[in-house]
Amino acid sequence: MNHSERQPRNRTYLMCPPEHFTVEYAINPWMDTTVPVDAALAVKQWSVLRDTLGDLGHTVHVLDAVPGLPDMVYAANGAFSVDGAVYGARFRFPERAAEADAHAAFYGAGGWRFAGPAHINEGEGDFAYLPAAYGGLVLAGYGFRTDPSAHAEAQEVLGRPVLSLRLVDPAFYHLDTALAALDDRTIAYYPGAFSEGSQRVLAQLFPDAVIADREDAEAFGLNLVSDGRHVILNTEAIAMGDRVRAAGYHPVHVDLSELKRGGGSVKCAVAELRP
Rank of each mutant, 00 (worst) to 15 (best):
V252E: 12
Y129A: 09
G57N: 10
F127G: 05
D101I: 15
C268D: 01
L224H: 01
P18E: 06
V210R: 03
A76V: 02
L41H: 07
R261T: 00
I238Y: 08
D242W: 06
I232F: 04
T52L: 05
G84E: 11
M31A: 03
E215R: 14
V66D: 02
P161H: 11
I238M: 12
N77G: 05
V43A: 07
C16L: 05
I187V: 15
A115E: 15
E19T: 09
Y173Q: 03
I238A: 14
R274F: 10
G84R: 04
Q7L: 15
A212M: 09
H250C: 12
H103E: 07
L182R: 02
M1W: 07
L69T: 01
H230E: 13
R9H: 11
W112Y: 15
R92H: 11
S149R: 09
A247R: 02
A118C: 10
L179K: 08
Y74W: 09
Y74V: 08
V162C: 14
G228H: 04
Y142M: 05
G57Y: 09
L130P: 02
T235F: 15
L158P: 00
A181I: 09
R200Y: 04
A26G: 12
L69K: 01
A102R: 13
P70D: 03
P161G: 09
G221H: 08
D147K: 04
R160A: 11
A76M: 02
A100G: 01
A89C: 06
Y190P: 07
G141A: 14
R185C: 14
G136T: 05
V270H: 03
V244C: 10
A40V: 15
Y190T: 00
V23I: 15
C16E: 01
L205V: 09
L233R: 03
P170C: 10
D227N: 04
A100Q: 03
A39L: 11
G197V: 10
E95R: 08
R200Q: 13
A118S: 12
R214T: 06
P36K: 13
L63Q: 02
A193M: 02
R113Q: 13
R90L: 02
L165N: 07
D213R: 14
A271S: 13
P131W: 06
D183C: 07
S265D: 03
C268S: 04
A178Y: 01
R50D: 02
V225C: 02
N121D: 06
H250F: 03
A271K: 06
G136K: 02
R245D: 05
N10A: 14
L202C: 07
G197K: 11
L63S: 00
D147C: 09
L179G: 08
G78P: 01
A97K: 04
V254E: 08
A209N: 06
D51P: 00
Q7S: 12
R261K: 07
A98G: 07
E124I: 06
D147N: 12
V244G: 09
D208Q: 12
A85R: 10
